[in-house]
Nucleic acid binder design. Structure first.
Length: 358
DNA sequence: TGTCCGTACGGGATCTACCT
DNA sequence: AGGTAGATCCCGTACGGACA
């Protein structure tokens, strides 16, 4: 297997009859990530088990691209009183709609309160190919030899399966006062070698240090890295809202955009002193001075020293500040954003944030 | 390769050591 | 002294593995 920027090429075709040799590298990398996290690894057949039809589609698409069409689908369900039959029927309908595959049979599994779907490809060669390709991709990524985009797609697959992202929030009755209390990434992986590889990949490509506790490997993600992960599209669907919320909270609470908005609201393009800003922001004057200095570094403020009336106490020289035109633009953009948890304008939001971060 | 089934996962909650 | 994040514990089932 040869991995290039946009394609993945199967360079040995002799043993792999009936399989196309070119695949979309991004989709294939995600397939391999899913194979690592949720796939059967005994090399006898390809199997993917999961409750989410959408993950099945991510797994199936690249296989179909390779010309594989013989999929056997089974489902598992508890059939308990509480869950009822409608839940099963709806789930099967959705699965068949999303994947364009027929469910052949449903087995009883008393634990499966949500229907679980298993897709089999009964082909030893393809099974071995996937196992080998996953290992190869992982090893190349560990050495840093693969493009970041491909590695991101692989990690997306891994995280969709074995990953978990936890957003800790401060407990508060008033939801307006919610505070982010850290964002954590965790992967659960038993295979020690694969776990070590994944840790190294996260460190090398995304600067995230994971610590191991048994089969769990976890670490915290700061704001900037959370943004990077979002931008690279490697946050699993079911966790994306948490990461967005983290970003929104941080920026809304005391972050730079919040400060910008307050200043813009209060002073527009007028000059103001650190003391005035301190009142508006509700922060101590010395802290505000530091913030203002940072803003000036980033080109969002200009400041000058000027003389005040001589009969006032303290130094007659004061530094006064004013928002730059660029800062006003950003403030206008920010004030147009939706309240927390609305996603329609999310892309717009990301644009502004990345703009802010330079 | 169809079917069964036990546990490695996920997903929190909480405790605690360090930091500001 | 409160905040942050590292470390540990816990629980139920959705997976992967195994058997026939």
């Amino acid at each position: 297997v040869e991995v290039r920027d946009d394609t993945l090429i199967l360079t040995r075709k002799s043993r792999v009859r009936g399989i196309r040799r070119f695949a979309d590298a991004g989709k294939f990398a995600t397939l391999l990530g899913l194979q690592r996290s949720e796939g059967l690894k005994d090399g006898t057949r390809v199997r993917f088990s999961n409750v989410e039809p959408i993950l099945h589609r991510m797994f199936l698409e690249p296989l179909r691209e390779l010309g594989i069409n013989d999929f056997r689908v089974h489902a598992y369900y508890c059939y308990c009183q509480r869950c009822g039959l409608k839940k099963l029927r709806d789930a099967i309908d959705e699965f068949e709609k999303v994947t364009q595959l027929k469910v052949r049979r449903v087995y009883v599994n008393k634990h499966a309160h949500r229907p679980v779907f298993q897709v089999d490809v009964n082909d030893r060669i393809v099974a071995m190919l996937l196992l080998r390709a996953e290992e190869l991709l992982r090893k190349l990524a560990v050495k840093g030899l693969l493009p970041r985009r491909i590695v991101g797609k692989y990690l997306l697959g891994v995280l969709e399966g074995d990953g978990n992202i936890e957003l800790r929030l401060k407990k508060s009755i008033d939801s307006d006062c919610e505070k982010a209390d850290g964002l954590f990434l965790r992967i659960s992986e038993k295979d020690a070698e694969a776990a070590a590889d994944l840790k190294e990949i996260f460190r090398r490509y995304f600067g995230i240090q994971l610590h191991s506790y048994g089969y769990d490997h976890m670490g915290s993600i700061n704001l900037r890295r959370a943004l990077t992960l979002l931008e690279d599209g490697i946050i699993p669907l079911r966790h994306r809202d948490k990461v967005v919320k983290r970003v929104m909270l941080a920026f809304r609470r005391k972050g730079l955009p919040w400060i910008l908005l307050q200043l813009a609201d209060s002073f527009r393009d007028r000059w103001f002193t650190a003391r005035e800003a301190s009142k508006v922001l509700g922060k101590r004057c010395n802290h505000v001075r530091e913030k203002l200095a940072k803003l000036e570094e980033e080109g969002l403020l200009t400041s000058i020293k000027c003389k005040f009336s001589l009969n006032r106490k303290g130094t007659p020289i004061r530094r006064i500040y004013r928002l730059t035109e660029r800062a006003m633009q950003i403030a206008r953009l920010l004030s147009s954003f939706p309240p927390l948890n609305t996603f329609s304008l999310f892309e717009k939001f990301l644009l502004a944030v990345t703009f802010l971060l330079g």
